[in-house]
Design a protein around this nucleic acid. Sequence first.
DNA 1: ATAGGGATACTA
DNA 2: TAGTATCCCTAT
Length: 371
Amino acid sequence: MSITSAADAFLIVEFVIGNRLVPHSVFTSLLVSLPSVSPHSSPRLRTGLALRVLDAALSDCVDAPALLHKAMAVLTDPHLAPYFPQRLFAPATADNTPAAAVANLKRLLDVAWASLPPSTLEIAADRIAGAGALHTWENADHALRSKLRLLSKLASTNHPVMVPEVDNAPQTHGGNDSVCAQENDKTGLIKQNAEADRSQEDITRHQQESVQGAPNAQLKERLVTRTAVRGKDCDITEQIEDTTPHVTGQSAPDDNKNHQVTGSKRNLMERNPTASTYEWGDGLGNSDAERSATKRQLPIFKNKTEPSSTAAQKTRKTWNEIQEKTLLEGVEKYGKGNWKDIKMAYPDVFANRSTVDLKDKFKNMERHMCV
DNA sequence: ATAGGGATACTA
DNA sequence: TAGTATCCCTAT
């Protein structure tokens, strides 16, 4: 498969950087095989990069004093220090030996990894097939629901769309089925984003569990390293190479055993016996007999003609200065017309803006620039 | 996915 | 009410 889009590269890198079991050397190989991704485009990228470098430093030596020395060098690196969570700079414990300090640092590093925000891909997946699926369905228009149905069918070819069992999950449409959705129904993407934010902890936990439960054999697959060297100033590849020249060619750090959680974890691709399947059907011809015990019907689609939803949709979202400057920066970097790349490069800034919004706004800004 | 143009919300 | 910003639809 050929990856040429900067937006795709961003999604891949932003996802993989949070997978602690992917060796740092493999990660850097992946970076050079993809279009460059700016580390400034995502807090997850920045923090993930810093944590990876520290992880590599802590797995590189044998004796505690040397280990501590290397770790401190990474923590005080001006390129990386701003991106480390504050908890990593916690004061030493009463037992001030290097071994204790290293152990304490590793513990704090574990917490920092666990606190890494979910990736854009994971948030999107959660909205489609995870805990946010019901909310997504409730707020989707007809076109989006058609796409979701298609996604559901594709996914169910081999792996049914799975969502966790929820006590108050709707069993039927009508009645109190969408109480939760109605309570949250201030409508719109902003609301969805807030929902995603609230579920970040759960997603992060899920991510860590899946990472730590993944089979090592798959993760040790080596990627083909490209020899080409990029020249971009703020390229994430360059930052990694600058800060960790010693990690090239390393295999997976053995100290991962320090971070293993107890108990067996299920692979993401395995079926969860406690999960049930929600079907995005049209509510026609789905008798109870046709549905298995583990399948549930999502709320039926209703044409949203209520004045409230229409009014919310018509509420204009004024562009702020940050968004405008970021848009100009994006056009300068990715070129006019590459709205998808620009949006994906600045997911935080343009979270509530569509690619069409970017296009329209730039068209409007161009008018001012011409005057 | 993107461009173009019309519709609509908002402001002075 | 005209001008502008933003939204939305349609064609490519």
